[in-house]
């Protein structure tokens, strides 16, 4: 399990997905996202490198693109343990990553992004990135998922979610093409403990042998969160096949 924080962005010598101090983090601006690349660097150059990178990250985009970019200047792309996919993580959000065996035997990787300021019943927003086999994502036997279309698998997921939720409503459900990937997307809402209505996003991407699910929720008491949450949900990128 790895806990990362915004300190990693500052290149403090700790890497969220590797041994501490084994690498120096360099940050590049790539396609509008801030990414980690990992390479060895002589220790004497670490501080200088970090300072230069800070300058690049924090000043150049502002100078070049103005305040619109500054809004997102604290976001970064988090690479999950398997290095197959990344998703935006807002500054001050924490990341927890774990791998476990689901009851149906499938291995599931789970990346949880939460605002570190929110605890317990005060949690108003969070994002999960789950990856597994289709059987692991949809909790169905392999002989079933191999015979059911991707679309019907997602329909089944939605149906199960509605069965086990209170006051659930589907807002929209669609299939989209995004960056060359077919994305099955559903936006719905439900009532939760504390009598709060949550807006829920689920997106499914069947990428090679792996299925990715991005699951996000935010309290409808804070509609301003919608923009940030949807940006995170839609930010998934695949690093390698």
């Amino acid at each position: 399990m790895v806990n990362a924080s915004e300190r990693d962005v500052a290149g403090a010598g700790q890497n969220a997905s590797g041994p501490a101090n084994a690498y120096t983090d360099a940050i590049f601006l790539k396609d509008g996202y801030f990414c980690f690349w990992h390479f060895r660097m002589p220790s004497t150059l670490k501080r200088a490198g970090v300072i230069v990178l800070f300058f690049v990250v924090l000043t150049v985009p502002v100078i070049t693109f103005g305040t619109a970019i500054q809004t997102y200047a604290f976001d970064m792309e988090y690479l999950n343990e398997s290095k197959t996919a990344g998703i935006l993580r807002p500054k001050y959000w924490t990341v927890t990553e774990e791998k476990y065996i689901a009851t149906n035997g499938a291995t599931r990787r789970l990346v949880v992004l939460k605002d570190q300021a929110e605890q317990g019943s005060r949690i108003a927003k969070y994002v999960y990135l789950i990856s597994s086999t289709p059987s692991g994502i949809f909790d169905l036997p392999v002989p079933v998922v191999t015979r059911v279309s991707q679309k019907d698998l997602v329909n089944y997921y939605i149906d199960q979610a509605l069965r086990s939720s209170v006051g659930a409503r589907v807002i929209s459900a669609s299939i989209k093409d995004r960056n060359g990937e077919k994305v099955y997307s559903v936006e719905w809402s439900r009532l939760s403990a504390g009598k709060i209505r949550y807006r829920v996003f689920d997106e499914f991407i069947f990428h090679g042998d792996t299925t990715y699910q991005v699951h996000a929720e935010y309290s409808e008491n804070f509609p301003v969160l919608r923009e940030r949450i949807t940006r995170i949900v839609q930010s998934i990128r695949f690093i390698k096949n």
Partner: peptide, 18 residues
């Protein structure tokens, strides 16, 4: 299972409960 992705049961911003 209803065909949610075909729009069969979505109902816009103020949907009726499913």
């Amino acid at each position: 299972v209803p065909k949610y992705l075909d729009g069969a049961v979505t109902s816009g911003a103020s949907p009726t409960p499913i």
